[in-house]
Design a protein around this nucleic acid. Structure first.
Lengths: 125, 125
DNA sequence: TCAGGTACCCACCTTCGGGTAAGTAGGTCT
DNA sequence: AGACCTACTTACCCGAAGGTGGGTACCTGA
């Protein structure tokens, strides 16, 4: 699991930041939580088409450990868990903004496909 | 190989940028080339303690394909190859700056070890 | 009565990123 | 003559990341 190999000695800040963002869905989770403020597990799953439940849980747990995500459990039936960004998660998201702009520019340059998702969660392509 | 799965449809800009930076040494290569302007293969290898020749080559080739790195071959004996950043490499590096700052802050927060390397290339710890 | 929703956990399996170590070609140093 | 330099290439191997498909406990609506 990724959690074991982390917090290693880092070469530089980028290294340390990448360690935290590495993972197929982490940046998307960050983006989703940033957009909606707070989201339930199933909402996140629907918002990230293609993610498996296992990976979503695993990533959320790691991000919680890393202090990026806050997990609020409501002891109800049916169970309800709400995820939101901590201040560190918010600042990381802000730090990723310039990278996102660069990436968008790159998509334009190379004319890559882009998966777009509408509000209902259906993949449009 | 990483080159096969790339340029896939992206969810967003961050996704596209991460695709290009993903790889254990890519951000370090970017940083190294940014600092020195132009570097030979063996200089890069010495500058990134722990990198294997295979990975260095592989990453450099991928970054060349992605238009981040320029490769200049001098047909001499012994062979000489110089690597430098293209304009896209430079702008990517700039976009990574804020992420690097965030990571440095995180290193300070969690008190992680940091591998420091002196000019001669020896690992100090 | 039984499918369906919630938020998970668990075991298994495949894929792939990365490491190790060797080989290559032409030349110079000793 | 043989070691060593350059910048690679090739083959092989391992461990981790991620996917698949099940199971859980509890309740609700048809």
């Amino acid at each position: 699991m990724a959690a074991s190999a982390r917090r290693g000695p880092y070469f530089c800040g980028i290294d340390a930041a990448m360690d935290v963002v590495a993972g197929k869905w982490k940046s998307l989770i960050l983006w989703e939580l940033h957009n909606y403020g707070t989201r339930r597990f199933a909402e996140l799953r629907r918002g990230l088409p293609g993610v498996s439940e296992k990976m979503l849980i695993q990533h959320l747990r790691e991000m919680e450990e890393d202090g990026l995500v806050h997990r609020e459990v409501y002891r109800e039936v049916p169970p309800k868990v709400e995820y939101s960004l901590t201040e560190h998660g918010v600042s990381l998201n802000a730090a990723l903004a310039s990278l996102g702009k660069w990436g968008t520019e790159r998509i334009r340059r190379i004319g890559a496909e882009k998966v777009s998702v509408d509000v209902a969660g259906a993949v449009l392509r």
